[in-house]
Design a protein around this nucleic acid. Structure first.
Length: 964
RNA sequence: GCUCGAGUGGCGGAAUUGGUAGACGCGCUGGAUUCAAAAUCCAGUUCUUUCGGGAGUGUGGGUUCGAUUCCCACCUCGAGUACCA
């Protein structure tokens, strides 16, 4: 009987689907295990062989856990809102929902062919109203919450209102906008409803605010920081500019510390944690207030240079953040970001022109230029002075674009002796560089080594190290009321509005310009139909094109815009108000989907408490590291928020995470003579002037030879191509490893592999390529090795006459081969080292074939061992051996040490650490006897050439090493 | 620049607490089978060699009886990050 993989695979895929073999139950006596893949965006291009790599690994693990007696949840779904479907809609007018549906269908077909053990009954799609109903619901919960720093968690906004009513806001320890004014309980009570709403917005965990955003004109939307790479959009590479817009934001900054601390308790790759740590960017230091010297100070002071202008009318103070309060006596100037709001207030008339010119010049430079150009030092003096908090000496105030408006307070106290940028700035402009370090030379560069710092010339800090000096400086600053210890985070609040159509609509309408939440019981608010997916003529988002997009707050339904007054101020007559025109960003739906899988069909809740308590969290999460600062950070944030609400049992959603490496393509290049339509084979190029051109990899065989006819028919411009071939008439291409992509014509499709070699071969070969986490090139040529192995496996069970498995007693050798394999494969799976278990299987099958093993006692457990990797063939063998149930939950074979016990050991005999020959000796031979046998051996004598060894190292059961 | 990660045959890669470097597979070479091909099977395949052996895991040094593995310095490649005060 032949190994007919196509037939076998189709048969079992049908069986699994019909019998719902992998449907997970929310009630079970078995321990739970949750294996999750990052769900895909269903793109129009379909899957290439790189995509399923992580899915195969997680599927092997899920299947293994079932054999190990776990109740396994292994779901799959689609992150189905997104830009490409919408761009396609703009070009063709086809509704994104239709495009998405088509793409999902194609994805599903491709996934099914690979034989994954997904529980499809739990499929989620983020663009499905039944799903995004709960995304909207979570948004409402965020809106109704504030972050209480005292309890260190999110609380309902009602508790904040009670506090305001009782004591105003001065004693409230909350995370909020910088711009909140203090008010008393009395004042709060007297505020109008609208004033109250505006104030509360500054505290809510999702809030509407005028924000400076990254606007991408080409995509017609704003982008989050993590969606921008090198100053251009991650998707499409379009330019991005800064623009002020009214946007929904997520107060993720409230969770900065917990997001940082939480990393300690999850088993995620260290580099990924490091990326998140950097993104959160915690710095510990102090905030220090410098008073700006005003006219009064000036007239009463003789200490100032003559050119000090009469500018500052009343006392101002500049707040700075520093990580080095210990160096405060080294301050010789201050620098403000050009955008700093005080700049215009303190600049003296004499310096006004210079300052304005400078600000104008910086504003012109794009963010990108400023980033790229780190060498040029620029800045200008404002003419104003601040007063040093301790020495009371005047400190000149400069502006410079090396200070960023968006970090800290946008101002720094410059300590040129301790910070290289301050040092360079001071050198460039001839500002003093006082040395406050003991025994350190600062004539060439600044001294930034905290560990070896000993402070000098610093009054009460003299002689102290970094730590003590920092502590003391903060104490003194607090004493004089000009500073305090402070922790700063780089993490910014996340903009949550997108000016797009294909995303979750906000459950929000506006009364007098103030946002109102739609009551949760009226969700979902479904996306309206629009005629065009482009922004409106007045520049509003695509939802501005909808004619049915107003909220009837009396009847609680979406109604025609005509019923809604254009001017919101007048709109209250009939209770019909305009709805939000933005939609949510791509990461909204993916921030909680792993919880939805636990109870995907629930129409009453996002998931029942029962299901959530049973499944708890993801035990193993596999996906790409590119989501480090996007999905993985936002999802952790929502998880913590929902945990604070008492809605989730755990505050980290994934215990263990693995980043699968990318599978790269092996591109093929042909070389065309310059200005001619003639192509030159690789070895005939010599010093000819040629241009490399990508050829489709499907035209190239395993010997790197191009199918010239296929190439000519590929594109019209190659129709009349001429070829300079090798001497044997073949045309050789050259190969290069690149990212697998359509544009490089190096894409390999998994369907074709399944068709030609089978899904089991594909699964094993993907694993065989190398370690899961590593990037590695795909090379279809190598697949025959794995395919041949499966055929060989088949032949252990079948010959021309059918099944050849017998009930004969297994040989000791065969038992040894089997148990060696059990041990290794089990260890490999636990360590996610799937590549090495493929080799182990090959060795085992090679050995059993050589042993002519036909024993069921060996071959039945072998089928179970291999079933996580090659489930179809395993099912077929399992059923051929007389089992009527699926192999999916058959117990994993138990390893028994006794079969591996050896009586003999092949000892490597080394001389000075180099193995020269081997010797078979009994395992239980004593050290003395080993030495005797080895020394008497003729080869030993030949090696020694008459010398007497200095030393003989014998490690019984391991090695013999003769020194001398 | 900084922070990680990695350098092993023609290629992908293996070597689990320091103990036989190159498992397994591809490719290549030779052979068997075949009218022929595919498929299958067998043998060989790190380099070098005077066929005894010798060298060898990016480079140089160190620790050790013994180092791909541990330590130091350097080189190369990849990823992340980029004026974060």
């Amino acid at each position: 009987m032949k190994y007919n993989f196509n037939e076998i695979e189709a048969k079992w895929q049908k069986y699994w689907s019909k019998n719902q073999t992998f449907k997970a139950n929310n009630n079970s006596d078995k321990p739970k295990y949750y294996v999750l893949d990052m769900f895909p965006y269903p793109s129009g291009a379909g899957l290439h062989v790189g995509h399923p790599l992580g899915y195969i690994a997680s599927d092997i693990y899920a299947r293994y856990k079932r054999h190990k007696g776990f109740n396994v949840l292994h779901p799959m779904g689609y992150d189905s809102f997104g830009l490409p479907a919408e761009q396609y809609a703009i070009q063709t007018g086809q509704h994104p929902a239709i495009t998405t549906e088509t793409n999902i269908k194609r994805y599903r077909e491709q996934l099914d062919k690979i034989g994954f053990s997904f529980d499809w009954s739990r499929e989620v799609r983020t663009s499905n109203p039944e799903y995004y109903k709960w995304t909207q619901w979570i948004f409402i919960q965020l809106f109704n919450s504030w972050y209480n720093n005292d309890t260190d968690k999110a609380e309902n906004i009602e508790t904040l209102i009670s506090k305001f009513e009782a004591e105003g806001n001065s004693a409230v320890n909350a995370v909020h906008d910088e711009t909140v004014a203090t008010f008393s309980a009395e004042e709060w009570k007297n505020f109008t409803s609208e004033e109250k709403q505006e104030i509360l917005l500054k505290y809510r965990l999702t809030y509407l605010a005028e924000t400076e955003v990254n606007w991408c004109p080409a995509l017609g939307t704003v982008l989050a920081n993590d969606e921008i790479v090198n100053g251009v959009s991650e998707r499409g590479g379009h330019p991005v500019v800064r623009k002020k817009m009214k946007q929904w934001s997520m107060r993720i900054s409230a969770y900065a510390e917990r997001l940082l601390q939480g990393l300690e308790k999850v088993d995620w790759p260290e580099p990924l944690k490091e990326i998140q740590r950097n993104w959160i960017g915690k710095s510990v230091g102090a905030s220090v207030d410098f008073n700006v010297l005003s006219n009064d100070d000036v007239t009463s002071s003789a200490r100032l240079p003559e050119y000090f202008g009469q500018a500052v009318e009343k006392s101002q103070s500049i707040s700075v953040f520093t990580t080095r309060p210990d160096t405060i006596f080294g301050v010789s100037f201050m620098t403000l970001a050009p955008e700093h709001e005080l700049v215009s207030k303190i600049t003296t008339p004499e310096q006004k022109e210079a300052v304005e010119t400078y600000i104008e010049a910086t504003a012109k430079r794009s963010e990108r230029e400023r980033m790229a150009d780190v060498k040029t030092i620029s800045g200008v003096f404002t003419g104003a002075y601040a007063e040093h908090p301790f020495t009371k000496e005047p400190v000149p105030i400069w502006i410079g674009d090396y200070v960023l408006a968006g970090y800290g307070t946008g101002a720094v106290m410059a300590v040129p002796c301790g910070d290289q940028r301050d040092y360079d700035f001071a050198k460039h402009f001839g500002i003093d560089i006082p040395n406050i370090f003991e025994g350190v030379d600062i004539s060439e560069e600044a001294f930034a080594d905290k560990e070896n710092t000993v402070i000098a010339n610093s009054d009460f800090l003299n002689g102290l190290g970094y730590k003590e000096a920092t502590k003391k400086a903060i104490e003194k600053l607090e004493e004089i009321g000009q500073g305090k210890g402070k922790i700063n985070y780089r993490l910014r609040d996340a903009v949550f509005s997108r000016q797009r159509y294909w995303g979750e609509p906000f459950p929000v309408y506006y009364v007098n310009g103030l946002p109102q939440m739609i009551d949760a019981k009226h969700l979902p608010i479904e996306l309206p139909e629009v005629e065009k997916y482009l922004p409106t003529e007045t520049g509003e988002p695509p939802l501005g094109n909808a004619t049915e997009w107003a909220w009837d707050s009396v009847n609680n339904k979406v109604v025609s815009n005509d019923l809604c007054h254009a001017e919101p101020v007048e709109a209250s007559q009939n209770g019909i108000y305009p709805l939000e025109l933005n939609t949510m960003p791509g990461w909204a739906g993916s921030s909680w989907y792993f919880n939805r899988y636990m109870d995907a069909g629930n129409t009453e809740e996002f998931a029942s408490q029962e299901a959530l308590n049973y499944w708890q969290d993801v035990d193993l999460y596999i996906g790409g590291s590119e989501h480090a600062t996007g999905h993985l950070l936002y999802a952790r944030f929502w998880q913590k928020f929902l945990f604070d609400q008492g809605l989730l049992p755990v505050d980290e959603f994934a215990k263990k995470l693995i980043n699968q490496g990318m599978i790269l393509g092996t591109s093929a290049f042909v070389y065309r003579l310059e200005n001619e339509n003639t192509f030159v084979s690789k070895n005939q190029i010599g010093d000819k002037k040629v241009l490399p051109i990508h050829a489709d990899v499907s035209f190239v065989n395993t010997s790197e030879e191009l199918d010239m006819e296929a190439f000519k028919n590929w594109r019209p411009e190659f129709k009349d191509a001429k070829f300079i071939t090798e001497e044997d008439g073949t045309f050789k291409v050259s190969r290069e490893v690149e990212k697998m992509s359509k544009s490089k014509y190096n894409v390999v499709n998994p369907d074709e592999i399944c068709e030609n070699y089978g899904a089991d071969t594909l699964r094993m070969y993907e694993m065989f390529l190398g370690p899961l986490e590593q990037a590695k090139p795909w090379n279809t040529a190598g697949i025959t090795g794995v395919h041949g192995f499966l055929k060989k496996l088949w032949k252990l069970y079948f010959d021309d006459n059918g099944l050849k498995v017998t009930d004969s007693e297994p040989s000791a050798e065969s038992l040894k081969s089997l148990h060696k394999t059990i041990k290794k494969v089990e260890e490999d799976i636990e360590n996610f080292s799937f590549n090495t278990s493929v080799s182990t299987f090959m060795i085992c099958v090679n050995e059993l074939t050589a042993q002519k093993c036909t024993s069921k006692a060996i071959l039945e457990p072998l089928a179970v061992l291999i079933s996580p990797y090659a489930p179809h063939i395993a099912e077929e063998l399992w059923s051929a051996l007389g089992n009527s149930e699926s192999i999916a939950t058959a117990p994993f074979p138990a390893f028994e040490e006794k079969y591996l016990v050896e009586s003999m050991k092949t000892y490597p005999i080394s001389f000075n650490g180099k193995m020269r020959f081997t010797l078979d000796l009994p395992m239980d031979m004593s050290k003395e006897d080993i030495e005797k046998v080895v020394m008497e051996h003729a080869k030993t004598q030949a090696q020694l050439e008459g010398r007497t060894p200095k030393k003989i190292i014998i490690v019984p059961g391991k090695i013999v090493n003769i020194v001398g």
